[in-house]
């Protein structure tokens, strides 16, 4: 099923949680809503599920508006951040709940529950109660429960946030595989860019209730549409300057700005891996600090009178040859993006 969200807005009192958000999710897609906490992602998800009402805008399933439908009538599977498993029911009863609520016979619902538990790899745990399961197992029960009534759409709210790092990695791979097998249109919310990029076909970056950018993970990484997106995904250097003949000057370094008119104030964002430093005694900058990050080295360079930029290199990179704090280096910008600089005040 395809989803279309048109000009969605939602306020909580005077707080604007969602501001005029529009996007589309195609049938069978796995899409991530990515952004900082409190940015409105979960609210969008909850509106799609019918758990919250929109103040303005329309949500369409396969082109049909669903605003009048109660959550129980939308046939949407929802996985809650803290699982929300029914603690007084066994795992099987939890998974069978949706079918039983629709009047499916106990035996049939039980068979479907067993099938789903097999699918999520929890064979034989059907008689346990949620408190006897680990966090990862609970999350999979929650997923099985959401999938049991054959939803048209699967929504996951920060599905892995409450699980420790190692299990989270495994669950991610597993969820992607599951999605590739079942092809249920799915949307998940996350504040973890790595998770969004590892799992999703497309990523929607949400900040402050607004949609900043929608695109494939590569597009988001390489062509950040807004300064926020550029800054949110990965470590970046930010330079403010004046555009002049397609570039801005930063302490002797020319940074391309693209098509800005001469004299326009610009903000240029350079990712830490889009800068190259190498030792050059007649170079324009000086290494002020070198910091080991395990398999990578972070190098900070001072530019005459303009401040510092930093770059990261693999530990064995030939660029690091002979480099040491205090030495002079040459600098090359492999990629940068410029945004209009809004002078506030």
């Amino acid at each position: 099923m395809s989803i279309r969200v048109e000009h969605l807005s939602k306020n909580f009192g005077s707080f604007e949680a969602v501001k005029d958000v529009s996007f589309e999710v195609r049938t069978g897609e796995l899409v991530a809503l990515l952004g900082p906490s409190g940015g409105g992602k979960s609210t969008i998800l909850r509106i799609i599920a019918g758990l919250e009402n929109e103040d303005a805008g329309t949500v369409r399933f396969d082109g049909e508006p669903v605003g009048h439908l109660h959550a129980r009538a939308r046939k949407v599977g929802f996985v809650f951040q803290h699982y929300a498993l029914f603690r007084h029911m066994t795992v099987t009863e939890n998974v069978a709940f949706g079918l039983r609520a629709q009047g499916v016979a106990r035996s049939e619902a039980g068979a479907r529950a067993a099938e789903l538990l097999r699918l999520v790899g929890l064979d034989g745990l059907g008689k346990r109660v949620p408190s006897q399961l680990s966090g990862g197992q609970r999350q999979r029960v929650a997923l099985a429960r959401a999938l049991a009534p054959r939803p048209r759409l699967l929504l996951l709210d920060e599905p892995f946030a409450a699980i420790d790092a190692k299990v989270r990695q495994e669950l991610r791979v597993w969820l992607r595989r599951l999605h590739d097998e079942m092809h249920v249109t799915s949307i998940f919310v996350t504040h973890d860019q790595e998770e969004a990029f590892a799992l999703a076909d497309r990523v929607l970056v949400i900040n402050n209730g607004k949609l900043e950018q929608a695109g494939t993970p590569l597009e988001i990484m390489d062509e950040p549409a807004t300064e926020f997106v550029a800054g949110f995904v990965g470590e970046v250097n930010v330079i403010d300057g004046i555009a002049s003949e397609g570039s801005a000057v930063f302490g002797g370094l020319r940074v391309p700005t693209g098509s800005f008119a001469d004299g326009a104030p610009v903000r240029v964002v350079i990712r830490s891996y889009d800068l190259k430093f190498w030792r050059d005694d007649s170079g324009i900058a000086t290494v002020s600090r070198m910091q080991s990050l395990g398999d990578r080295v972070k190098v900070e360079a001072r530019f005459n009178g303009s401040g510092s930029l930093f770059a990261q290199f693999p530990r064995r990179s030939s660029l690091l040859a002979g480099m040491e704090p205090g030495c002079r280096i040459a600098v090359e910008v492999t990629k940068s993006r410029a945004y209009p600089l809004v002078v506030s005040g």
Binding site: R72, A84, G98, A146
Partner: peptide, 20 residues
């Protein structure tokens, strides 16, 4: 959360009350 989960699973208010 539990009552919301019951709603997304299609339970009526009455079912949700008695069973959750």
């Amino acid at each position: 959360d539990d009552e919301e989960a019951a709603a997304t699973l299609g339970a009526s208010a009455w079912q949700s009350f008695w069973r959750v």
